Amino acid sequence: MKRKLFSVALSLVLAGGVLAGCGSKENSSGASPAASASAGAANDLAGKKIALVMQFNTGTFSSQYVEGVKEQVEKLGGKVTVFVADTDLAKMSSNLDAAVNQKFDGILIDHGTAEALEAGVKKALDKKIPVVSFDSILSVPGVTSLEQGDQKMAEATLEQLAKDAGGKGNIVKIWVAGFAPMERRQLAYQAFQKKYPDIKEVAAFGTAQDPALDSQTQMEAILKKYPNKGDITAVWTAWDEFAKGASRAIQQAGRTEIKVYGIDLSDEDLQMLQDPKSPWVASSAVDPKDIGRVQVRYLYQKLHGDQTPDKVVLDPVYVSRDQLPKDKQVNTAQLSEYVKGWGGSQQGYTDWLKAAEKK
Rank of each mutant, 00 (worst) to 15 (best):
A162H: 05
A208L: 13
P309C: 14
A203N: 06
A20V: 12
S320Y: 04
A208W: 11
E147F: 09
F192S: 03
A177D: 14
N57G: 13
N95Y: 12
P130T: 13
W236P: 00
L273N: 03
W342Q: 04
A204Q: 08
V84I: 12
Y338S: 03
S136K: 08
D240G: 01
K128F: 09
Q72A: 01
K200L: 06
G254Q: 10
I137A: 10
R248W: 13
G305H: 01
A9S: 04
D105I: 10
D110E: 10
L89M: 05
E268P: 00
T144V: 12
A41G: 08
M272Q: 03
S36G: 10
K122Y: 08
K358V: 14
F179Q: 04
L52T: 08
F104T: 08
F6I: 15
I222Y: 05
K229N: 06
A114K: 08
S93W: 01
S29T: 15
P197I: 05
L52Q: 03
N43G: 11
R255Q: 10
I232D: 00
V172W: 09
R321T: 04
Q209L: 15
H304W: 13
K122T: 04
K75Q: 06
S145K: 15
V286Y: 06
E201C: 07
A46H: 08
E257M: 11
E115D: 15
S320C: 08
I291F: 07
N331I: 06
